[in-house]
Amino acid sequence: MTMTRIALCAALLAFTTPLAAEPAASVPVGMAPSIILPINTLVVVTPIEEITSKEMKVGQVRNFIVVNDVVEDGAVVIRRGAPVKATVSWRTGKGIVGKSAKFELTFDSVRAGGRDWRLRGSVRQEGRGNTTGALLGAAIITGRSAVITPGQLINVFTAEEIPFQQGRAATYGAPVVQQPASPAQPAGINPNSAIRCITC
């Protein structure tokens, strides 16, 4: 009879004891899943200074900046003002008989997240020809230089996927200042009561 009672108690305990919950997967605090800026994403750029065909040579690098933030899933992957590099891929000088100068720039990379990412796209600029002088047969009249000025908008595109860790967005904000902990009061002292200086 005693053994039967013990067995019944053990069975009741087995049913009433809650099962141990499986440990949850650990997720770093303050971190969010990374996102991907897809290939062929539009990036609008403008030169940081005037670019002219005068004394320009093929292979030279010209500097641009990103005009607007490039956003994916609510996160800024490429920030406004990010540096962009382009290379002079073709150029003709000012010609005679009113022919204008021309050049072409091929875009290479944009700086984001501490490294350079490939871009694709090019722009061709042509100076205004002096057609009036050419029609009059004034062979000594030359065309005009080709120029791209700051504020002139040019569309280029990403040539590769750009990953971005959303948790890094917090680093762009103001730093969090840790407040010092209040010192513990010794036992028996009321912090609201007046304290008399014993050395005064």
Rank of each mutant, 00 (worst) to 15 (best):
P47I: 07
A169T: 09
M31R: 14
R124D: 07
I148E: 07
N130P: 00
R196C: 01
I189M: 10
L135N: 08
V147E: 15
E126N: 01
R124I: 09
K94L: 14
A187M: 10
N190C: 10
I6D: 12
A10C: 12
C197L: 09
A24Y: 14
V44D: 14
T16W: 08
A184E: 06
R120N: 08
T131L: 06
A134R: 14
V58R: 07
I148Q: 06
R79C: 04
V84Y: 02
R80K: 09
A139E: 13
T142Y: 01
G143L: 10
T158L: 11
L12F: 06
C9V: 03
E55T: 14
Q125I: 14
I162F: 04
R168H: 05
V45E: 00
R168W: 09
R5V: 15
G98I: 02
P150G: 07
I96Y: 14
A20T: 13
G114Q: 14
A10E: 10
T132D: 09
A21G: 05
F157N: 01
S34Q: 13
N63Y: 02
N68M: 02
L42P: 00
R196N: 08
I148A: 01
L19H: 14
P33K: 15
N40I: 00
V44R: 15
T16Y: 13
I6G: 05
Q152V: 15
K54L: 11
T132F: 15
V58C: 03
K94T: 14
P175L: 07
T92Y: 05
K54Q: 07
G167Q: 02
S122V: 00
M3Q: 14
A138V: 14
K102C: 01
P47N: 08
N130V: 11
G188F: 02
I6S: 05
T16D: 04
A10G: 12
Q60G: 01
S145K: 15
A21S: 13
I78T: 09
M3V: 03
G173S: 04
A187T: 06
N192G: 12
R80F: 03
V45T: 08
E72K: 11
A139Q: 03
K102N: 14
T46H: 07
T92N: 13
F103P: 04
I140G: 08
R5K: 11
T171L: 13
T149R: 13
V177D: 06
N130R: 07
A7H: 07
V88G: 06
V44T: 15
V67C: 02
T149H: 08
V27D: 13
A24S: 05
A10R: 10
N190I: 01
K99T: 10
R120P: 00
V97G: 00
V29N: 12
E126H: 04
W90V: 02
Q179K: 15
R62C: 02
